[in-house]
């Protein structure tokens, strides 16, 4: 659960300014309808429909086992589904799967790299499978390695790379042929914050260059940071879909304060309820939790009331709705259960 201190502001949305929503096309690049998939007797995708719009960063958010990776793998054409239609630019993807695959760049969840080979050889090999040759191939490789910040290690074997560098190379192998649509399946699993920031920053840049990006993750911080649109999945179903502002708006009616306080005499909750807009007060030892209506300014009054009652305030934290609370609201469980 994300908790922001009062002074820090709402840092969750700090980077959103770099995303220019006006570049997103309104036309659907890809359209998925009635998708179903079973593994043995368990239905893991239960008839989902969605669209991918030109130029967007569409994030699939959901806990592990929600069906994100399965959906992604079906979209790539690598995994067959029981029923459903997937069309890309108006044509069924299975009609000419090879031609369709040329439009895609895939960043699989597992590191799909030849560890005994240098980084450049890996990128060259995979890019060449998409038809790149000669100068085009050289340029594609340079672009991918520079983009991922690995140019100076191009000739080193992958086995000598750190975890974060391997993750970046995993992306380089997917973008050298400059795909129209990039599909990234949990590309930041198990890496350091620095590499993660590098990757997220890269995703935004790729989108600015015109790529359409599908991104799965169970880190809601990442989704908050890069998504232009979000699909929330749980147990093989899409449970919500929209921009993060729209998703939050539905439940974003309250502001929650958590106050760490010390006192000789327990403060009277009734006094706090007298402040207009206070919906709920819970006092538990040194922890005072207050839910207040978002539209009324109440914090200064809460502080004044507490100080008047000889309460010493050690810290105050405020929390507004985030994707975690959206998920909690929709499913009754936490994202990382």
């Amino acid at each position: 659960m994300s908790t922001l201190t009062m002074n820090a502001g709402n840092s969750n949305t700090v980077n959103n300014s770099s995303i220019n929503a006006s570049t997103i096309g309104s036309s659907a690049m890809m359209e998925v309808t009635g998708l179903r998939k079973r593994f043995r007797d368990k239905e893991v995708i239960c008839g989902i429909d969605f669209q991918v719009l030109q130029g967007e960063i569409l994030c699939f958010l959901g806990p592990n086992g929600a069906g994100k990776s399965t959906t992604i793998n079906i979209i790539t054409g690598a995994l067959r589904c029981e029923s459903g239609n997937i069309s890309y630019c108006g044509a069924d993807i299975y009609r000419n799967l090879t031609a369709y695959k040329k439009n895609l760049g895939i960043v699989p969840q597992d590191l799909a790299l030849y560890e005994d080979l240098p980084a450049l050889t890996n990128v060259r090999f995979f890019a060449s499978l998409y038809g790149l040759k000669g100068r085009q191939l050289d340029e594609g490789c340079r672009y991918a390695l520079e983009f991922t910040g690995l140019m100076d290690r191009a000739k080193d074997k992958v086995s000598t790379f750190s975890g974060g560098m391997k993750r970046r190379l995993n992306i380089a192998c997917a973008i050298a042929h400059r795909p129209r649509q990039l599909i990234m399946d949990e590309p930041t699993v198990g890496i350091d914050p620095q590499s993660r920031n590098h990757i997220l920053e890269g995703v935004r840049r790729l989108r600015d260059e015109g790529m359409t990006i599908l991104y799965t993750t169970h880190y809601m911080e990442e989704v908050e940071e890069i998504a232009t649109r979000i699909i929330i999945m749980d147990e093989g179903r899409i449970i919500a879909e929209g921009t993060k502002e729209a998703l939050k708006a539905g439940i974003d009616k309250e502001r929650h304060y958590e106050i760490d306080a010390s006192y000789d005499e327990c403060p009277d909750a009734a006094l706090l309820y007298q402040i207009g807009g206070i919906n709920e007060v819970a006092i538990n030892g040194s922890r005072i939790a207050i839910a207040a209506a978002k539209e009324t300014e109440t914090l200064d009054k809460i502080i004044t009331t507490l100080i008047a009652g000889s309460v010493r305030i050690n810290a105050i934290a405020s929390r507004t709705a985030n994707l975690e609370t959206v998920f909690l609201h929709l499913t009754g469980k936490s994202l990382r259960d």
Partner: peptide, 16 residues
Amino acid sequence: ERVKNPNMRLVYSPVK
């Protein structure tokens, strides 16, 4: 193991 994951990328790529 060493080649299984890179082979996976082949499955995604436009290769018969």
